[in-house]
Nucleic acid binder design. Structure first.
Lengths: 355, 355
DNA sequence: TTGAAAGCGCTAACAT
DNA sequence: ATGTTAGCGCTTTCAA
């Protein structure tokens, strides 16, 4: 029923009546084989159902063109990032090796697996490991941290300007006439501290220091729901929420409590994950620029592998949209290893004038 | 800053002053090395930061102990399945190679990648490829399809008893006194046809043939929301929904319309994904037995790789809960390659007596 | 344009 | 208990 052994390059060579070298060239689309040879080889490969063995290939060539990606399988936004990473990797001719963090599988395990797979670099999505262990990891191979700030000069970081994101949110709400704006916080989640800070400074800039109100939240729907229930006793006219997932929980509780959004309360999320785009949710949110961030993560990882300093050349090149609101399109504030991508506000149906 | 070359087994051997073979044994925890040697080798490996190269290891040993998994990165329930698969794989000493389907990356691409990685078997989560191409794939290596029925004797199938799941749901509702029970359908999604059928037969059994009502839905929140809006004009007292994700959309529209669940309408989902368990959703649902399904998928894949017929030995062994409701714990109805795992009803807060 | 030979890092079979 | 040898499937010299 099934072949005992998978066909190898040697099998193809024998069948096509040529040497292994020729088959190798043809399979890699390299020049150096005649059209006739090429045809015969491809025909033989096809007939045998030949698939090159990536392990042997990589073992021999020394380079793997393999980028390891650690992500949280329960995070919807990570799904969006992985989607972007696949696209970016394809553009540069690289492969992705996914390694998931699950409730039963730690980040450490996920990383170890990728190291044994001989990835050339690691891209970590919002990792929770402390800066010190990330730095240690980076001494072994290039590490790019995506969507989290890390105070470690050894690792590359690509993240959104979280604080600026909350400026956009608060500016939008203040512009609509809101004064009672509460922030539902992400606790110790990546980005939470900066978003909290952004909320504070923006409120201050609008002369709303007296209205500052921050509620502990978190990154899940449940966290948002819990925070929203607290809010019902003394509701503001608007809330900015740590992320879309949490905002979904907020909206849910509001809906059940008969609170009309945006008539009674406006809600703004963060991420612009697929969740926010759902027609019936239609969430106004601070969008992270996933295509740019993922492309940057991949190009920087590759540059480090090649021993180059990525600089900002490819960063600027990949930004197509003009700088908005006085933000430079991409900036390097803390270290030359950190790239900060500007978010943008996506206005949908959950924000409006206070009533 | 970073070492040019990763240390190899030879480096460790040199440093420890022993042969490569010894190092190999020690690294694999195989017997045949003295305690003293073992200590020195481990010390040298640690000092160098040595990580075995899984590619070379697998290339040489011929076997990869690598199971390829194709999943939809946007599907929350797939996340639950992948989580279970990791656990099951660890129990048997196997590795998982994840390959995601994204809006930009087709199932075909996902499979091709895994073939080149020399996985020993493939586990496909709710694949959309036609039975014929799955059969063709299965002629190259063992294929286990998870959470979808496939009429192809070449592939192994592990899935829930979808029809029985809807029997449980309808029985529960009918027991509470409901008569106007509408089913929101999953269209062409895996399992949808069986769940629809289960709804019909259960309704008939309760003498509710006249109340049969099926609304087109789908597998996303938006699909559920759309269906729910239609329902509002002429609402039933209860709905069974294709899956939890779709049910979430239904609940959302109900909440906004001021429909009280379960007082006005009862709602039952399917999957018992992490979504359903959220405290504020608290969805009554038909739970798929993820630990059993994933363990079965892994053990069957492994058995096929070994050339054995998996039979039902390990299937029955892995079922710890007694057969409920006259269902045999595991059954093989269509072919001996299909294992059907019984679902169970999880009663939470979205179902109650009709008012 | 083609082929022969060496060797990537490891494990397995066979020495000792 | 330890070392030696061969070779997994491929790419990469190098020579023809």
């Amino acid at each position: 029923m099934r072949d005992e052994r998978r066909p190898t390059l040697t099998d193809v060579a024998t069948r096509a009546g040529v040497s292994k070298s020729l088959v190798s060239l043809v399979m890699r689309d390299e020049p150096g084989a005649s059209a006739e040879t090429r045809r015969r080889v491809l025909e033989a490969a096809d007939a045998l159902g030949y698939q090159p063995d990536s392990r042997a290939r990589l073992l021999r060539s020394g380079r793997s063109r393999l980028l390891g990606v650690v992500f949280g399988i329960q995070h919807p936004f990570h799904a969006d990032l992985v989607t972007g990473l696949y696209t970016a990797a394809r553009e540069t001719g690289h492969e992705l090796a996914l390694s998931a963090v699950t409730p039963q599988r730690s980040e450490h395990e996920a990383v170890t697996g990728l190291l044994q797979d001989r990835c050339e670099a690691l891209i970590l999505l919002g990792p929770q490991a402390p800066a010190a262990s990330l730095a240690r990891l980076a001494s072994r191979l290039p590490v790019v941290v995506l969507a989290r700030a890390v105070r470690a000069p050894e690792v590359d970081v690509v993240r959104s300007a979280d604080a600026e994101g909350l400026h956009l949110a608060v500016d939008h709400l203040a512009g609509l006439g809101h004064r009672h704006i509460t922030h539902i916080d992400g606790g110790r989640a990546p980005g939470a501290a900066d978003r909290r800070r952004g909320y504070r400074t923006a409120m201050r800039r609008h002369g709303l220091t007296g209205e500052l109100r921050i509620l502990p939240g978190g990154l899940t729907e449940s966290d948002g729901a819990a925070a929203a229930r607290q809010l019902l006793a003394d509701p503001p006219t608007a809330v900015t929420v740590f992320n879309d997932r949490c905002a979904t929980g907020v909206l849910d509780v509001f809906a059940r409590a008969g609170v009309d959004v945006p008539y009674d309360i406006s809600v703004i999320g963060f991420d612009d994950s697929s969740l926010a785009r759902l027609a019936h949710v239609n969430l106004t949110t601070v969008a992270q620029d996933v295509p740019t961030m993922t492309r940057l993560a991949v190009t920087r990882a590759i540059a480090r592998v090649a021993g180059r300093d990525p600089g900002l050349a490819e960063a600027s090149a990949s930004i197509t949209r003009p700088a908005a609101e006085g933000l430079s399109p991409v900036s390097l504030p803390r270290s030359d290893r950190e790239v900060i991508v500007p978010p943008r506000l996506v206005i949908r149906g959950t924000t409006g004038r206070p009533s």
